[in-house]
Design a protein around this nucleic acid. Sequence first.
DNA 1: AGGCGTCATTTTGCACGCAAAGTAATTGAC
DNA 2: GTCAATTACTTTGCGTGCAAAATGACGCCT
Lengths: 154, 154
Amino acid sequence: MTPMKKNKDQQGEPSALDLDRQVCHSLYSAANALVRAYRQTLEKLDLTYPQYVVMMSLWQKDGVSISNLSAHTRFDAGTLTPLLRRLQDKRLIDVKVAKGDERRKIVSVSRQGRSLKKSAEKVPGQIACAVDMPAEDALKLKGLCETLVGKLKR
Amino acid sequence: MTPMKKNKDQQGEPSALDLDRQVCHSLYSAANALVRAYRQTLEKLDLTYPQYVVMMSLWQKDGVSISNLSAHTRFDAGTLTPLLRRLQDKRLIDVKVAKGDERRKIVSVSRQGRSLKKSAEKVPGQIACAVDMPAEDALKLKGLCETLVGKLKR
DNA sequence: AGGCGTCATTTTGCACGCAAAGTAATTGAC
DNA sequence: GTCAATTACTTTGCGTGCAAAATGACGCCT
């Protein structure tokens, strides 16, 4: 019955445009899911995920310019400017004009920012726990992502 | 000389908070880099990456409700509402209230939306070319991302 | 010294991403 | 049948992410 029905909801022939076979969509979804997972953990620290990334970068090495920070975090300058303003409003960082080159600004962790690090130490463990991925897979994933970032360098 | 110098730019002992060993940061960077790569390709179609994802979902199966679309694309409803309005403004989709349940809306691809599909067929190839990743790695990456999404289901 | 190109950062404008609150229609309990 | 809970979607508010334009400082060339 219903011979030659024009199958409107096709799902007909598989296409390169099928969402379910797109690596990019998986990657995009995973990144969003991850940020969502961080949100719960980080709200105790009153940080967003990008702010947390910037703080990690500064905890590792501070007294850096915005362009240094941009290179290390891979956030562009136009993203960093307002983000740093918010971290400054929270008294987590200090920003001062570099002596010798007034274009440059030097960002460093404040006293409060340094004390926040202690609470932040627990974050990676909590996320690792929520994600629950074998170390080997995590490394593989990281490697593939880094390769991808490398290929897509602007 | 400079004995016992308080090493201010430490990089001292490695920490779990070091940016460079965080899988999440790599994933986040990769997703952003991908969207950036898509931007150039997609601007010819006057689509953003999320809009392209929605169109792919609809090309695959249309006549769906917003919550169906939300499940398939993994975008939340609050993201979809304005996004669909923009696709509607571009005359790529039609949205109508479902008969029998006036809360629900049914989204389908318009004539123009269907004709756009032909141009979009070229997109996956162009991205694949820019990314230049062996199929095996791509599959592995997709698998790991899907696992992660699964673990982090809300 | 004056001027011009370059560099670091900021601003602007637009589109998400998402939690939370709001609205309207439907269902379910009684 | 009525009314409260639920469901589907919209709205609001805030923080990115980024291209492009604007701003201000530096540095070199002559």
